[in-house]
Design a protein around this nucleic acid. Structure first.
Lengths: 247, 247
DNA sequence: GCGGCCTTTTGATCCATGTCAAGACTCGTG
DNA sequence: CACGAGTCTTGACATGGATCAAAAGGCCGC
């Protein structure tokens, strides 16, 4: 990584003096750092950037400069097939860290698009590596974040590989619900930020199927949907749907 | 990570004196290390372990002690659903590094089973973290390995989410072929180490479908199959199958 | 070298999801 | 406020892959 060796202490000092409104405390990185270390990290994660709905945070093929921590908003990442097919690889919200897949090649391999007005913090990757070298617990935490992403992906593979449409959608809704809850929002009532088509892409289904299954769930009283608005009436029933099922 | 803090220099010395037949040069870790560093890493990756066909390298739920580098052989990893369904998450061969998903929780989340007699090198994770702290380029390389795993998973998601049976299988065969080639084996002729059912699980298809599509490929002259033996006659045709296809 | 179990193949049929199509609704913009 | 593009719903129909079933083949332990 050539960018790495070109960093001097001055760069860090420069960053320290920059705006520091983007407290890293709320983000995903810190864990077990002492106050001084935390302050260091805090300074690193400071360049704020607004991304408007529909804008790209980054595109496949561009060089990896920074990872991005979402401060607010909603972002989808998508892998693109040569022939134009796109596969939504994930939906990301406040506190999520984006761009991990770019570390391997030093180049982004998927697109990241804001689904609503969003604010992210740049985390210059070279700086992160450098700081992680000085703060072992930061490195350790970063390892866990990468690993967690792998675990998440395995979950999606399980879903795509062995669940039927109803189960997939139920799992998806529960997952969204839980992530909203973690962030202090209602776990039962929220607005979907993505289209049926995007949900379908993520779940390996067509948009009509998403629409139909949502309607069925509603008929059965499990949820209420109206456009992007969604209310979960019977989370347990959804859980039962995912949990067991046939063979 | 409690195991980490309990390591003393003595542990490392102990490991250094242990068998050192498992040269790390051939494994996936080293990259840009000087000779001395390489030797250090070499000493860490030294406990050899044979795993016989059918045996578990590790099981979901067990504590993460080591990552494992495959020296020879073939291993499948599988995520299990509560209800017993299993999803094969990957097939791993010489040089691959296993166990990355366990870092997040400190506990393995999938099973790893040898599909043929296999030899692995233990890489005590606590030791790896410690050494990576001393050797920045090792840490950097480890980050890239984790990221590469994420990229691989995204590829599988694309495959599961948006390809049809023929495309999936073609992609699978090409991938296997390429990995054998990288390791100095024939890219056109090899033995499948896994059952049709395991291929099916990995690709989100049933074993009958795998069998049928293989037969079809054979009829069309793209490949020859007989049980586990497989020969690729027309790799380009396979690539064409994966590449474009309809809408 | 035999018997039994596991794996594979292949056929017949079924069903979940895709495809195509039409119309309604929503929202941003002129 | 009306228009148009994008999104969503719903129906009718098509189809890829699943399921069920049977038989053949391979492999291992005895």
């Amino acid at each position: 990584m050539s960018a790495q060796s070109s960093l001097t202490p001055i760069d860090i000092a420069t960053l320290r003096n920059a705006c520091s409104t983007c407290s890293v405390r709320e983000l995903c990185l810190p864990a077990g750092l002492d106050l001084q270390e935390l302050a260091q990290v805090d300074k690193m994660v400071n360049r704020r950037r607004p991304v408007r709905r529909g804008d790209y945070l980054y595109r496949a093929g561009t060089e990896l400069q920074s990872l991005y921590a979402i401060r607010s908003g909603f972002i989808k990442s998508a892998v693109l097939h040569e022939d134009g097919r796109e596969q939504v690889a994930g939906f990301h919200m406040t506190g999520d860290l984006l761009g991990l897949d770019a570390i391997s090649a030093g180049r982004h391999l998927c697109d990241a698009v804001a689904l609503e007005d969003t604010e992210v913090c740049d985390i210059p990757f070279a700086l992160l590596e450098r700081l992680a070298r000085e703060i072992p617990s930061l490195q350790s935490h970063f390892n866990r974040i990468m690993s967690r992403e792998i675990v998440r992906d395995h979950g999606v593979m399980l879903l795509l590989g062995s669940m039927r449409a109803e189960e997939r959608l139920a799992a998806f809704l529960l997952n969204l619900s839980q992530r909203f809850a973690t962030r202090g929002y209602s776990s039962t009532e929220f607005n979907l930020r993505m289209t049926r088509e995007e949900i379908g892409s993520y779940l390996g289904l067509k948009l009509e199927t998403i629409s139909r299954v949502l309607s069925r769930f509603q008929q059965e009283g499990l949820i209420q949907v109206r456009n992007r608005y969604l209310k979960i009436n019977d989370a347990d029933a959804l859980r039962r749907l995912v949990g067991h099922c046939e063979s």
